[in-house]
Design a protein around this nucleic acid. Structure first.
Length: 329
DNA sequence: CCTATTTGACCCAG
DNA sequence: CTGGGTCAAATAGG
């Protein structure tokens, strides 16, 4: 069975928890697959962009810039507090975008500092990448095979900032994700799913995430984010409803760690009722596979109780939206 | 025709 | 050698 996820009203791709896998039928292709070539072009572009050097600023300059950005964001948050009393959805929208912009800039700035990271606040995720110290191989595609099968040729992720989140529901973080892989993990009951930003190629957004189902009943997921979104297709704040959800409080997401200077500011709770529902298939429904749950993107909803914090340069910026009035359409 | 998903192949780090 | 991360062909479906 294959679930076709459609875009929701906000042009946000759904976060497709995989549907039941299809048998992979190998068959000679009857038609050409033009995307393949396109993908390679995009990948080369990615490499070119990533290889470009960061402007010749000292860590101190960057730190000052980051300090200033941080200050600006805090001021914006103060402004938001003022606006709570008599705010319009439009103003909240604007404010959220401003905050988002600050956070993104901070994260981008810090991302480029991960070799001489500011204050050493970037820490590899202990889970998967703490040991990956080596630089990505400049040419990881030195396949010995003479053909053009580039499967498996990739730029392995450099140890980059990551942060994890555990929750019993799945958070719609407002970004468009596309699944690109699934692996069975040793000693893990459920396979791990790999997602990249939909705008990896059109906007060279390097953000990826992994979703690991930890347990069933109650369901528990760990979502680990790597890299930061540089795409501009962040879910419009006006489309994000910050109202409380009906989820059980016990299922509140828990931000496990901030291995980055800019933990995601996109754990914005949605009103599940406003996001289209996808097919939800219970993990064991019929398949019998020891497989991942098939959850709808709307299952990625977080609760309003999610505590959103950001850590930047050792300071913690509380990003909790508890006291925010909900957005309305 | 297009985009998204599935899944085996492939590569790298340990 | 093995496990994990990524690629990309094959496939599904609008």
């Amino acid at each position: 069975m294959k679930t076709r996820y459609s875009y929701n009203n906000y042009n946000i791709n759904t976060i497709g928890w995989p549907s039941l896998p299809q048998p992979h039928k190998k068959r000679a292709r009857e038609v050409s697959y033009p995307k393949s070539k396109r993908k390679k072009e995009h990948r080369q572009r990615d490499i070119d962009i990533m290889d470009c050097s960061w402007p010749d600023t000292t860590p101190f300059d960057r730190r000052k810039a980051a300090d200033e950005l941080l200050r600006g964001r805090e001021l914006a948050q103060q402004l938001r507090a003022y606006l709570q009393i008599s705010s319009t959805p439009a103003s909240q929208d604007l404010l959220t975008r401003i905050l988002s912009s600050f956070s993104k800039t901070l994260s981008i700035l810090n991302h480029r500092c991960d070799s001489d990271d500011i204050n050493g606040s970037i820490v590899d995720s202990p889970e998967d990448h703490g040991s990956r110290k080596s630089e990505e191989s400049g040419d990881s595609c030195k396949s010995s095979t003479p053909n053009n099968d580039r499967r498996g040729c990739y730029k392995r992720r450099k140890s980059c900032q990551s942060w994890a989140r555990e929750s019993c529901d799945l958070v719609d973080d407002g970004h468009a994700w596309r699944k690109y892989g699934q692996k069975t993990i040793l000693n893990a009951k459920y396979p791990r799913n790999y997602y990249r930003c939909t705008h990896k190629y059109d906007q060279t957004c390097q953000a990826t995430k992994q979703v690991q189902r930890l347990q069933d009943n109650p369901p528990k997921f760990r979502t680990t984010y790597y890299g930061n979104h540089t795409c501009s297709n962040f879910l419009k704040a006006s489309d994000i409803v910050l109202g409380s959800s009906n989820f059980d409080d016990s299922c509140s997401g828990v931000l496990l760690s901030f291995d980055t200077t800019a933990a995601p500011n996109f754990f914005l709770p949605h009103d599940p009722t406003l996001v289209k529902k996808e097919e939800v298939v219970t993990p064991d429904a019929g398949s019998g596979r020891d497989d991942e749950a098939v959850c709808s993107p709307s299952d990625y909803m977080s609760t309003a109780d999610d505590h959103l914090s950001e850590v930047f340069m050792g300071s913690v910026v509380d990003f909790e939206d508890d006291d925010l009035p909900p957005f309305h359409f």
